[in-house]
């Protein structure tokens, strides 16, 4: 008579937490497998990455230093298979939903994620840009359902309020971040993390750095104003029509999925944001006096 299979007799099983600890797992029947867990918490949403590659764990802990959480219980988990899976980041990214699971692939990675189960896997080379891309996509999908978004924008906290400085490459995001005075807390110089927060929005720090090559601070504040940056002959803030604000915001929101339902959600989020948050155009000269306009 065959024995009944139960979880405790599985050849290899994963232990529950503590998060981020390296665990020796297995039993007498199985080969020794050491897995490493790193929980990366961005915008208050921890995502657990599990790998058997110790050097990749070190890469994660270094790259996301201020965002590695030792306490938060992750809502989402990914098994990361690091190996010779291709390294080309030139191929077009594809993000599709199929039978309730998100499928993500590009030349340097492929991934599957079941948002209901909170579990997924990633196959990639030992390349920090791949995991960075997967995290951005996953967070953009999570935020879309919550009324938030990732947006091409620098953001910073001053006097307890967050200010966003948006624009495509070359608009001045890194420049205005570099010019920030000492009383300003930089959240990011490249990609801002915006969550719905009651009747307003909250900007959170991200580890997604631009040319400044400096991680943002892992903190957050209510969004006071969104500025669209423009090069100009003087430091000046000007009004912007609602339609122009929505158009520019949609152009700068990071959105990867080929999914009509998500397009509608992002559209609603952009309109809600423009309804609730002051949006302005800012032209500035590249010197620190521009920050006199921000308080």
């Amino acid at each position: 008579m065959k024995q009944q299979w139960n979880r405790s007799s599985q050849l290899c099983r994963r232990a529950e937490g503590p998060w981020n600890a390296s665990k020796y797992e297995g039993n007498e029947l199985s080969p020794a497998i050491q897995t490493h867990e790193v929980a990366i918490e961005i915008g208050g949403i921890p995502v657990l990455l599990r790998t058997e590659d110790a050097s990749f764990r070190d890469l994660l802990e270094n790259r996301y230093a201020g965002f590695v959480s030792r306490t938060a219980r992750p809502k989402f988990e990914f098994d990361v298979d690091v190996g010779p899976h291709g390294a080309s980041t030139d191929e077009d990214l594809q993000v599709k939903i199929q039978a309730g699971k998100w499928l993500l692939w590009r030349g340097d990675f492929n991934s599957e994620w079941d948002p209901r189960a909170g579990k997924g896997w990633i196959r990639q080379s030992a390349n920090p840009y791949s995991i960075d891309s997967v995290l951005r996509i996953v967070h953009s999908l999570i935020l879309a359902r919550e009324g938030g978004f990732l947006v091409h924008s620098a953001s910073a906290i001053r006097t307890g309020r967050a200010f966003l400085f948006s624009g495509l490459s070359g608009a001045g995001k890194t420049t205005i971040s570099r010019l920030a005075p000492s009383d300003v807390t930089l959240l990011t110089d490249e990609i801002s993390y915006v969550r719905r927060d009651g009747e307003g929005y909250r900007a959170c720090g991200t580890p997604f750095a631009g040319e400044l090559a400096r991680l943002g601070e892992n903190c957050s504040a209510p969004v006071a104003t969104l500025f669209f940056l423009e090069q100009g002959p003087k430091n000046q803030i000007r009004p912007i029509s609602s339609a122009d604000a929505v158009r520019r915001l949609l152009r700068n929101i990071l959105f990867f999925a080929d999914d009509p339902d998500l397009v509608k959600l992002v559209f609603r989020s952009a309109l809600d944001f423009v309804t609730l948050v002051p949006v302005r155009r800012m032209t500035f000269l590249p010197d620190e006096r521009v920050w006199e306009l921000v308080d």
Binding site: A243, F267, T275
Partner: peptide, 16 residues
């Protein structure tokens, strides 16, 4: 599509 009036203007986005 998604559509909404904002600031006196009708805004429409194709979901396709």
């Amino acid at each position: 599509i998604a559509a909404r009036m904002l600031g006196g203007e009708m805004m429409i986005m194709s979901a396709v």
